[in-house]
Computed example of a mutant assay.
Amino acid sequence: MALIEVTEQNFEQEVLKSDIPVLVDFWATWCGPCRMQAPIVDELSGEVSSVKFAKLDVDANGRLAQQYGVMNIPTLLVFKEGKVAGSAVGLQSKESLRELLGL
């Protein structure tokens, strides 16, 4: 499934109301580890169709980052049925993301 950009405007529809789990990558353009995480998330999104993959720029969507307690980036949150079901902070391998998603 293709990676989507989520913002404060579409977060509720794309993430909270999704009928499948959603992995949200909280990132920023200036963050080196975030740039290293991006291709891993992108690659996994091409392999897994049972999960929606999304990116959220913390600089442009600070309210959401604050709401979900994101203090360090990259932070990856898994949402199921509108609630946080798992999280990981820092650069993650594809294998650890699979584990986080229960794959």
Rank of each mutant, 00 (worst) to 15 (best):
A60G: 05
D19Y: 03
M36L: 15
G82D: 10
E8V: 05
L101W: 06
R98I: 11
G32K: 15
T29A: 15
M36Y: 09
Q13I: 02
E8M: 07
A85L: 08
A54K: 08
L3R: 02
L91Q: 13
L23Y: 03
T29R: 13
L103T: 05
S93C: 07
K55Q: 11
M36I: 15
V89D: 05
A2Q: 13
E95K: 10
R63P: 12
V70A: 11
V89R: 08
S96A: 12
V51P: 04
I20V: 15
G86E: 11
V89W: 08
L97R: 05
A85W: 09
V78F: 11
P39L: 10
G32Q: 14
D19K: 14
D59T: 06
V22Y: 09
D19W: 08
A65C: 08
G46E: 12
R63Q: 14
F53A: 04
I73G: 10
E5R: 07
A85D: 14
S49G: 13
E95L: 05
L76A: 09
Q13T: 14
V84W: 02
E81Q: 15
A88C: 02
S18D: 03
Q9S: 11
A60T: 01
A28K: 08
Q66D: 13
L44D: 01
K55A: 06
N61S: 09
N61H: 10
I4G: 03
K55T: 09
V78E: 03
A88G: 12
L16F: 09
M71S: 14
K83W: 04
V84T: 08
E47R: 12
R35F: 01
K83C: 09
W27I: 03
V15D: 05
V6C: 06
S50H: 14
Q37A: 04
V6L: 06
N10G: 04
A65N: 10
G86I: 12
K80V: 15
E5D: 14
R63K: 12
L64H: 07
V89T: 15
I4M: 11
G90L: 10
V51K: 02
A65S: 13
R98L: 15
K80N: 13
T75C: 09
Y68K: 06
E47P: 01
I20C: 08
M1E: 01
E81S: 15
N61R: 04
T7H: 02
C34W: 05
K94Y: 00
T7Y: 04
E5V: 05
D19T: 14
L76P: 01
G69M: 02
L103Y: 13
Q92L: 06
V58Y: 03
E81C: 02
A88N: 05
G62S: 15
F11T: 07
T7V: 06
S96N: 13
E95G: 00
L23H: 03
L100D: 03
L23R: 04
G69A: 02
L101Q: 02
K55D: 09
V51H: 03
S45W: 07
D42C: 00
S96G: 00
